[in-house]
């Protein structure tokens, strides 16, 4: 046995192994705290900043961070931090509501199709396949371009763009549950198919739907930011992180903070959501862990 391999084994045993477990937990705790902070911003923006997000200060335009303003100011002298805080509510609204819409519609299509099978399932899933060929952002873009620019329509468009993903995964889940013995057992005592679908198939499909939903919130927030960056989405009166990134675009070479902080925020939020989603998957679906 060489000294090298002893060294590796020692590392494996003490340092790495003891690091790995709490490492995962630390990430989950950090992600949770970060998410709580953003939820706090969304719920009580007034508690986190004294300012008005739309208040312009012509005397303090393009201030760098920490010079009277935590994250600096934009070209109109508005506090970037205040704008981020007030942008949390629409961002989370879009993330949650669009996921709810997409999750419910997509899961319903997938579960019913997968459970009933037959030609309806074939037809619907081929349509879903066509939609799946388009990236979610592009799909949302098509819908939002066709709708009046309001927050509700943005939620709807992003929600619809999540439908095919949910439908595909939940159909697979329903197919798997359908073939399980308890479904046959309920069938042979004469339980109606409708009852089997509601009482047995749907609850047994719930865990993956919840995990997928959690992960989808992050995706929806990114899509929303991307649409807003492109100038699509709610036109007036709604603060958006994507819009903020876009408005700082022209100043990025000198006044980097206007675009960078909202970009960083979206990135961190998506990471936090996916860390929590993964943890949730481990907890709810022990088989796939």
């Amino acid at each position: 046995m060489t000294a090298d391999s002893i060294g590796t084994r020692w590392l494996n045993r003490s340092a790495l192994r003891t690091w790995r477990v709490p490492h995962g937990r630390v990430m989950v705790v950090l992600a949770g705290l970060f998410l709580l902070l953003v939820i706090g911003w969304a719920a009580f923006p007034g508690l986190f900043t004294g300012g008005n997000p739309t208040a312009v200060n012509p005397l303090a335009t393009l201030r760098a961070p920490l010079q009277g303003y935590l994250l600096g100011t934009d070209q109109y002298g508005r506090s970037v931090y205040t704008e981020l805080v007030y942008g949390a509510r629409p961002a989370l609204e879009v993330g949650l509501l669009s996921t709810l819409i997409g999750g419910v519609i997509g899961s319903a299509i997938g579960v019913v199709g997968g459970y009933l099978g037959g030609w309806v399932d074939m037809l619907v899933m081929r349509l879903i396949d066509i939609l799946l060929a388009l990236p979610g952002l592009f799909l949302a873009l098509i819908f939002i371009a066709a709708l009046p620019p309001t927050l509700e329509n943005e939620i709807l468009a992003i929600g619809i763009s999540a439908v095919p993903g949910f439908a595909r995964v939940m159909r697979g889940q329903a197919l798997q549950v359908r073939s399980r013995l308890f479904v046959a057992a309920a069938t042979v005592v004469g339980v109606r198919r409708r009852v089997i679908l509601w009482r047995h198939v749907v609850p047994n499909c719930a865990a993956p739907a919840i995990v997928l939903g959690t992960l989808n919130i992050g995706t929806a927030i990114v899509i929303a930011a991307s649409l807003n960056f492109l100038g699509l989405g709610p036109s007036a009166g709604v603060l958006s992180w994507g819009g903020l990134i876009s408005s700082g675009q022209g100043y990025i070479d000198h006044d980097w903070w206007i675009s960078t902080f909202p970009g960083l925020l979206v990135t961190l939020l998506v990471i936090a959501v996916s860390v929590l989603g993964d943890r949730l998957r481990d907890a709810m679906e022990p088989s796939s862990a």
Partner: peptide, 28 residues
């Protein structure tokens, strides 16, 4: 089914829905 012919299975645990209480499955 059920009222004239019923069936029991080889794997009794898998034949019950894991997320529904036993009594409800009988009630059904």
């Amino acid at each position: 089914r059920g009222s004239q012919i019923a069936m029991i299975f080889q794997d009794p645990v898998a034949a019950l829905d894991p997320v529904v209480r036993v009594g409800e499955q009988v009630a059904e």
